[in-house]
Amino acid sequence: MSGTALDHPLVLDYLSELDAAMRGQPPEKVRELREQLAAHLADELPPDADDEQVADALRRLGPPADLAAEAGADVTVSVPPSRQLARFLKAVRPRSWIAIAVVLIAVAVAGKWCDYYLSAGSLQFNYGADWWYALDAQHENVVSINAQNQMFPLVQNTTLIRYGQRQGYVISVWNNTKVTQTIVGDGAGPTVGWNNPISEKEQISVSRSYTDIANGVTGESAARGIKFGLPVSIPPGQSRLVRVLWTSDVCPASNQGGSVSDLYLRVRVGWFTTTETIPQQTWTLQWGAGARC
């Protein structure tokens, strides 16, 4: 615009006054009227217009406050809702449409994704289980607690408390879902030492590969050579061993012991980490004859 009448101080003052008078109105409306008036003046005035010519043109345009009031006046022509909607849609810039589309797609995908993972289901007990140490397996007493269920038999496995020593069990868990589930730690169960029958402290770890826990073979023997750790991911359709170890450092009464039958694990699925409760067999510790703390 350099070298045109639009650079004249009177024009610049006029447009500044217009801006001030239109304060509060939509920026698009302000910009448009400014552009129209500038084009009008550029058409009307020669580049070398003198003060008198410029002042005359501005006087004929009318006071900025009047134009601002006119621009801010309500639309006197009745506009049907369909046209108002069309006008709104037209006013949205292409870049905004792209942003809106991206956000909507992201929300839809995230929603679908959240639903997919949150409804995936939990890990399952896979019926392979035994005490981890041979000493405990030697004294175990296995009793069926749902003998009528041939397909999913559950047992109560009882062994002796070895006070002050490490004890533990290992079970097989199966990822019977369509998503990878990652065990990240001990779950928040209803009591302290949630996953063991006696101690307030326990250590949970998961095998990085899998082997069957055969009858008559203790966990330690069966899993020899297999590494345990956390976190461990279990792909869909695969199984892993979950080992729970503790030191039997609580001294129950001579005729009492402890039991645990659910396994609580912190499991990450997609973005979500939740506690999964895995029903399993019952592990019981009790005193042997004459034993004491």
């Binding site: 409306k29 448009e32 004929r60 345009l61 009047d66 006119e70 022509v77 069309a86």
Partner: peptide, 19 residues
């Protein structure tokens, strides 16, 4: 015409109304 400038807000209103 009251003033030349009033034509432009009017044009914008007519445009907004689809006329």
């Amino acid at each position: 015409l009251t003033s030349d400038g009033t034509v432009y807000p009017l044009l914008n209103r007519l445009r907004d109304a689809g006329l």
